[in-house]
Design a protein around this nucleic acid. Structure first.
Lengths: 154, 154
DNA sequence: GTGCGACTTCAAGTCCACTTGAAGTCAAGC
DNA sequence: GCTTGACTTCAAGTGGACTTGAAGTCGCAC
């Protein structure tokens, strides 16, 4: 913690404050997601702002982007280090769209589940989702019902 | 597609209708997530209800459960093949809780992003989230801001 | 100037959820 | 009864996101 009051963070400090393992931070750097400067002896030193970039990476992962996609998204921002509001807005809107889709999908799963709780799904005689004729076949591939009467394995 | 009008599905038919690869179906069976019967010659035959169990597995994966967790969740249902409404309700409620948490988390990320779009985040002089003093440190580990002034790699 | 914890690189390992490939068998149509 | 596509098992491979381990160096406090 020797540099904690100075303007650069060691990898250990960054790890402690970002919640990432040092190994993960080196991996991110290798992928080009973050950057470091080096001491004369070759040790990494990070700007404090790297903490915010890591939060950014984490947010992106949270919405389902791979690290490669995060890097690509960052690539859409200009190389000079002060992207314009328009630059950033374009990236952010793409992500927001993705978040909205994910929320909608989760809500749909939740609603299906709610219906099952209401009717005691899995009890074959009562659930509205239960469809003994398997008419899901009419829709092509992909089952359309949440539950059925499959006996449990074992 | 030879058995398409009979009461059991081949693995190819199940794959086509569930949207899973045959290799994935064998893998699921190996994990105990689905079950099959065998023909005299050793080929798998599935009940139509397996389609719904696969939809169930897919829903569970969608909300972030690993296949092991799905199996564990199924293990909470009784071994006899008609779980009661209460049995199922308990499992479903656990999952619903998880979905709600995930939706809340996604909404939070979206709101942060919205704030950034509004102010032209990454442009250091204007964003309310930008915090040159890095006061995130006060909260222990984990950065609290989405963005910063890290120059892009490359 | 020495001790020691924090750092370095590089290669290999891990976990998850599958996929691929090889070598062989089954089953339905002709 | 033969052909052919769909099936079988088993082992190994893949890709993403890291982690672990070995062997060595740095840097700060004393």
């Amino acid at each position: 913690m020797s540099l904690s009051t100075r303007d650069r963070l060691t990898i250990g400090e960054l790890a402690a404050r970002s919640g990432n393992a040092t190994s993960a931070l080196r991996y991110y750097e290798e992928l080009g997601l973050i950057q470091s400067e080096r001491t004369a002896g070759g040790q990494r030193r990070y700007r404090r702002a790297t903490l915010r970039w890591l939060a950014f990476v984490r947010a992106a992962q949270r919405i389902g982007l791979s690290l490669g996609e995060v890097r690509d998204a960052l690539a859409h921002l200009p190389v000079d280090h002060v992207p314009s509001a328009a630059d950033w807005s374009r990236v952010a809107r793409t992500w927001q769209h993705r978040i909205d889709e994910q929320i909608a999908e989760l809500q749909q799963v939740r609603d299906q589940l709610t219906g099952c709780v209401g009717c005691g799904c899995l009890s074959l005689t009562r659930c509205g989702l239960y469809n003994p004729e398997d008419t899901a076949a009419r829709r092509g591939s992909g089952a359309r019902y949440l539950l059925g009467d499959e006996p449990l394995a074992r």
